[in-house]
């Protein structure tokens, strides 16, 4: 009998929680309604009365790390306005985990172990490409040191993602141009790159990880630049969360990742649309 998506979700969730409990991660709950959503150029928060719904729990997780928690994870709903398609739904389930004294490579090792445990993906089938390698190979140019946002985004979806689909299985796209760093820190030894990776499975983006940016001055500068750009695009500008910026002063080095649970279930179910795993969609 084919397994239904409700039962599948339950089985995968149990395995995910068991994985993190075994490794002594603390499961945390952070606010879903917030006053100041984390500002990112292309992510729009859903208004909710005089609050917004979270687009990610990351700003709270980093504040927890700053107060002394070392290994935390959360599974919960996040909301992004206007994102709808076979691979998008405006309300979706995100898994995030963070650890201190770790960087994006440690988080990659966690991710491989997790996907081995919950999806049976063997270590031996993973591929890895730097952004420079992937773009030179599949799009004929190197975005590092030569970044063009529109060209980057369009070549990513038209050329790189289809090539990753061809390669098949998990492919890690790693070391982003610093302009696409989001909340990741610059790569040690190469200021043109950021310590960020994205995991693709069969060409579908599953997870996004950083060596977390912990420099409050740099973080404020990025938020301010982002606010300028959002304003120029006619998008709503969110205020800067001062308690978050303040907490970065005390935040130890850390790595963290956000992984889309619905897409993971879709891949485990061998489906090509979220329709297969979101029964009320």
């Amino acid at each position: 009998m084919p397994i239904d998506s409700i039962t599948l979700r339950n089985a995968v969730m149990r395995n995910i929680r068991a994985f993190f409990y075994d490794r002594a991660f603390l499961e945390v709950e952070t606010p879903i309604r917030l006053v100041t959503p984390c500002m990112e150029l292309h992510i729009d928060a859903e208004p909710c009365g005089d609050h917004f719904l979270r687009t990610s729990p990351e700003i709270f997780h980093k504040q927890l790390l700053a107060t002394g928690y070392e290994k935390i994870f959360e599974i919960g709903k996040c909301f992004r306005r206007g994102e709808m398609g076979p691979l998008h739904h405006p309300e979706y389930t995100m898994l995030e985990w963070y650890r201190t004294q770790a960087d994006y490579m440690d988080i990659l090792a966690d991710t491989k172990a997790l996907l081995q445990a919950v999806a049976g993906i063997a270590d031996s089938v993973w591929h890895q490409r730097t952004v420079s390698e992937a773009f030179l190979e599949f799009a004929g140019w190197d975005p590092v040191g030569n970044y063009d946002e529109d060209r980057f985004d369009i070549d990513l979806v038209e050329k790189v993602e289809p090539a990753f689909r061809e390669i098949g299985g998990p492919v890690v796209l790693i070391d982003y141009p610093v302009e696409a760093a989001a909340l990741s820190r610059r790569k040690s030894g190469n200021p043109l790159m950021a310590e960020r990776w994205e995991l693709y499975i069969n060409g579908i983006e599953i997870a996004n990880a950083y060596s977390e940016l912990t420099d409050p001055t740099e973080q404020r500068r990025r938020f301010e630049a982002c606010a300028e750009q959002r304003k120029a695009m006619g998008k709503e500008v969110y205020s800067i969360d001062e308690s978050f910026i303040e907490s970065l002063e005390k935040m130890p080095p850390a790595g963290g990742v956000a992984l889309g649970i619905d897409r993971l279930l879709m891949l485990i179910a061998d489906a090509d649309s979220l329709d297969a795993v979101l029964p009320f969609r």
């Binding site: 292309h42 992510i43 994102e83 691979l87 998008h88 529109d150 989001a182 994205e198």
Partner: peptide
């Protein structure tokens, strides 16, 4: 028609 939004990138309509 396909809605696409590469990680942290802009919405694209393919």
């Amino acid at each position: 028609f396909e809605f696409s939004k590469p990680g942290k990138g802009q919405a694209l309509y393919r």
